[in-house]
Structure formats: structure tokens, C-alpha cells
């Protein structure tokens, strides 16, 4: 049978495509782009929260935040591994990131100014990520789908701990409530931008939907997120920083105000508040770790030659 036909039949039948199956070049390229950007987002996403590990208000909060940031590292690794099954090389992906050639989620280019931001990130940013990631558990590429199952299992603790931080602040002093509101004000719009451009201006939407990499459009997922989150904001007693937001009785959905897409594209283009800082931090960590990687390689080589001296020189 024609290879392309078999691929199309698999997709139509909701069968998973596996690493060694034939696939169109564009499908492979699209997946490498999406999975590697996703992996980069997990890795860069450690930085805004890492900022507060040493300043967490209690030992308990510190342990929780450490565990969350460690999870993000793990998520990055599951995803890099999934990208590698498609023939991508880990070091090429890493180089693209630290040389500023790769994209990652725009949200991580905003600064974490107060402890409340740890709440807002877990609640809103991880909440938006979950909204995006749950459908990806059913995406057509097997290794990506399986990685997302693991990620989603771990992600719900992230969102709940974030909401709990917000809840505690909102039950606290006026100053703490203000801190929570300020944080919501700063993270609300960037969180909505996480779902990507509006459907009519999204370049990758249609093909990815056809290939069942994406299951829902950017706007559909954004709407779901808003509908789910507004009642939570009300529960906290906070105000949605959107004066145009209104409940539409007839559709049963909230209508949100206009998103500042200029800001979104500006951040994507590298001009957000922290783009340079994030890449510089990643680059420094990578370079500072070079001697460790070299030492590990030297040690492995030494052990190999010590254990099997004859084989090494046999050829």
C-alpha cells in the first residue's frame, strides 16, 4: 500500500503514529517544532519560579516549590526525548535555545515580582497549560501523547498549590489581598495569550488539526479557560482585570475584552521584559555545567577501559 495512504488511514482511524512508522516530512517537522518548543517552555519555565525558591515564606512552601520546579525539569526531559524519537538531536535543540533561535511560551518572559506570582503562575499559567495539554494526551504521535499523559498527571498538583497560595493571601491582610490582586492583574492577559493567536491568524492551526496533533483550536481552548477561571476569581474575591468582560446568557459563555496582540508578538519577537535574562540564565547554567559533563564522560571512558582493557585496543 502507498505509504502516505497508510499514514492517512492511521490518522483517520485514530491510530497512533509511532517513531519508526513512515510519516510525511511536514508532519515530522511540525512535531519537532512543537515538541521542542514545548520542552524549551518547561525548561525556561523553571526560571521565573526558581527566583522564589530561596525566598519562599516557609519551609513547607519551599519544599513544594522545589518539587514543582523539579517536575518542570522532568517534563522538559520527557519532551526532549519525544522530539529525539523523530530524529532531532538533543544538543541541536539545546543550542537553538541558548543561541536564541528557538521559541518557547511567551509567558515565561514576564518577571516574578512578588510571592503572589508563585500563586498566580501555578493557578493561571499551569491551569492554561493543562487546558492545552489534556487534549495533547490524545494527539496522533504516540511518544508525544505518552509524554503528555505523564505531564498531565503531575501538573494538577501544580495548579492546586498555586490556587492555595492565592487563597491564603486572599484570606489574609489587606496588603496580602492587594498583592494577590496585583499579581492577577499582571498574569491574566499573558495567560490568555498562552493559547496563541486568534484562530483566523494562527498559521499552524488547520494542518495540525487535520493531523490530529491539535484537537481544539486556540480560541476554543482560551474560551474554556476563561469560563472555568472566572468563577475561581470570584471565589477568591478578586476582580478580573478586564472591564469588557461580560457573561453572555444566551451562549452560556463569558465574552472577554480584546487581547493586546501587539504585546504578544512583541514578546515572541524577543522584546518582552525578561527574554534576554532568561536566555542568559539558561546559557550560563549550560556553560557552567560543561566541566561536569566532561568529567562524567572522562570517568565513563576510564571505567570502560579499566574494565575491558583488551577490547578497547583490539580493533
Amino acid at each position: 500500500m502507498d505509504l502516505n495512504q497508510r499514514f492517512e488511514d492511521y490518522i483517520a482511524a485514530d491510530q497512533k503514529i509511532e517513531a519508526k512508522d513512515w510519516m510525511p516530512d511536514d508532519y515530522r517537522k511540525t512535531l519537532i517544532r512543537q515538541i521542542s518548543q514545548h520542552a524549551h517552555s518547561e525548561i525556561i519555565g523553571m526560571l521565573p519560579e526558581g527566583n522564589w525558591i530561596t525566598r519562599a515564606p516557609s519551609l513547607k512552601r519551599k519544599a513544594i516549590l522545589l518539587a514543582k520546579v523539579q517536575d518542570e525539569a522532568g517534563h522538559g526531559l520527557y519532551l526532549y526525548s519525544a522530539a529525539e524519537t523523530l530524529g532531532a538531536q538533543r544538543d541541536d535543540l539545546m543550542d537553538a535555545l541558548i543561541e536564541g533561535r528557538a521559541k518557547y511560551s511567551s509567558i515565561f518572559n514576564y518577571p516574578t515580582l512578588t510571592w503572589a506570582d508563585m500563586g498566580a503562575i501555578g493557578w493561571l499559567v499551569d491551569g492554561a497549560a493543562i487546558m492545552n495539554q489534556v487534549p495533547l494526551c490524545k494527539c496522533s504521535y504516540g511518544p508525544y501523547a505518552r509524554a503528555m499523559v505523564r505531564v498531565c498527571k503531575e501538573e494538577s498538583f501544580h495548579q492546586r498549590q498555586g490556587f492555595q497560595i492565592m487563597l491564603n493571601l486572599c484570606e489574609g491582610t489587606d496588603e496580602q489581598r492587594e498583592m494577590a490582586q496585583d499579581s492577577l492583574n499582571r498574569w491574566w492577559w499573558p495567560s490568555l495569550m498562552m493559547f496563541g493567536p486568534n484562530d483566523e491568524s494562527s498559521t499552524h492551526n488547520e494542518q495540525s488539526m487535520r493531523w490530529k496533533i491539535k484537537r481544539f483550536s486556540n480560541d476554543e481552548l482560551r474560551q474554556r479557560f476563561v469560563d472555568m477561571t472566572i468563577p475561581q476569581i470570584e471565589l477568591l474575591g478578586l476582580t478580573v482585570p478586564d472591564k469588557d468582560l461580560r457573561w453572555n446568557e444566551s451562549t452560556g459563555h463569558y465574552e472577554m475584552g480584546a487581547i493586546d496582540w501587539q504585546e504578544f508578538f512583541n514578546v515572541i519577537a524577543g522584546n518582552g521584559p525578561c527574554n534576554k535574562e532568561r536566555i542568559a540564565a539558561r546559557k550560563k547554567a549550560h556553560n557552567d555545567g560543561e566541566w561536569v559533563r566532561q568529567a562524567a564522560s572522562a570517568y565513563a571512558e576510564k571505567m570502560r577501559t579499566d574494565v575491558m582493557p583488551n577490547q578497547t585496543h583490539a580493533a
Binding site: Y78, E84, R90, A147, R150, E154, A296, S297, A300, R304
Partner: peptide, 23 residues
């Protein structure tokens, strides 16, 4: 459960513990 890069088997086990058995 997945894969990872490591310089030798010991490092692979150590990293696998951190990456795949945190819970």
C-alpha cells in the same frame, strides 16, 4: 517508561530515579 542520555549506567540509573520515579 522512557529514555535519557547518560555517560554510563550508574548515571543513567541515578537520572532515571529523578526523572521517572519522583512519585
Amino acid at each position: 517508561v522512557g529514555s535519557l542520555h547518560a555517560s554510563d549506567a550508574n548515571m543513567a540509573i541515578a537520572n532515571a530515579r529523578d526523572v521517572y520515579t519522583r512519585r
